[in-house]
């Protein structure tokens, strides 16, 4: 890695300064990609293509011995850049990071196809192009609070317990619960309402 950087630095010195800034012009790339996303701007897309396609091809040649497959990576990646540009969020990272993700995902799915004959395209699930950030409550489960709530739920009538547990603990939808318990949707809604009212009362009291 150090070697690469030294080499690049030397290059910068010898190259024409106007075109050969070592620093990527992130702002410019961002304007182009945003123009593709919002205005379907073909001119901006052409600029992105000029910038990225040769680099993607070089990287793809390192992964695929076959020239046609390397070209397919370029075509597929740039097509996805056009189709999925609206998933790019400039507040979450640079254009280069996003396009790298698109390229890595295309490469991963293609290699998987070659190796295992699977056409399941899992890459966008593994590395989403629109990344949602971790929400705190998912990570830090409050066990003491959970225990307290469980105690209160335990005194609810059985049918209300079922919907509360299904809805909040197993994250089933109301529709799924209705199907699962074989009762009308309206019944699920009213049981949920009743149970929540009781829980609120119980928990409120124990907090006083």
């Amino acid at each position: 890695m150090a070697d690469v950087q030294t080499e690049l630095r030397n290059k910068t010195v010898s190259d024409k300064p106007s075109l050969m800034n070592k620093e990527l012009d992130h702002l410019q790339l961002c304007q182009w990609l945003t123009a593709v996303a919002t205005d379907r701007d073909k001119q901006a897309f052409t600029r992105l293509f000029q910038f990225f396609a040769p680099k993607i091809l070089r990287i793809a040649k390192g992964k695929f011995p076959n020239e046609a497959q390397a070209n397919e990576v370029v075509q597929e990646t740039m097509t996805n850049v056009w189709r999925k540009a609206h998933l790019f969020d400039q507040n979450k990272g640079a254009v280069t990071t996003w396009i790298y993700t698109v390229m890595r995902n295309v490469t991963f799915d293609m290699l998987r196809k070659v190796k295992s004959n699977k056409e399941d395209n899992l890459s966008d699930d593994i590395w989403p192009l629109a990344e949602s950030l971790v929400t705190e409550d998912e990570v830090f489960v409050d066990h003491i609070e959970n225990k307290k709530i469980c105690d209160v739920i335990a005194v609810l009538p059985e049918n209300q317990q079922q919907v509360i547990k299904g809805f909040y603990f197993n994250e089933m939808s109301q529709e799924q619960l209705a199907a699962h318990l074989n009762v009308p949707l309206g019944t699920i809604k009213s049981r949920l309402r009743l149970a929540l009212a009781k829980l609120k009362k119980q928990l409120g009291e124990s907090y006083d």
């Binding site: 690049l8 050969m20 370029v74 075509q75």
Partner: peptide, 29 residues
């Protein structure tokens, strides 16, 4: 990503003219 896309090994990368092959691909996309 930064390393992948900053490597500029030849002036070709930044040339304004696209090669015929690239131009074909672009218009197809």
């Amino acid at each position: 990503a930064e390393i992948s896309f900053e490597k500029v090994e030849s002036d070709e990368d930044m040339s304004i003219e696209l090669s015929e092959q690239d131009a074909d691909m672009l218009s197809q996309i």
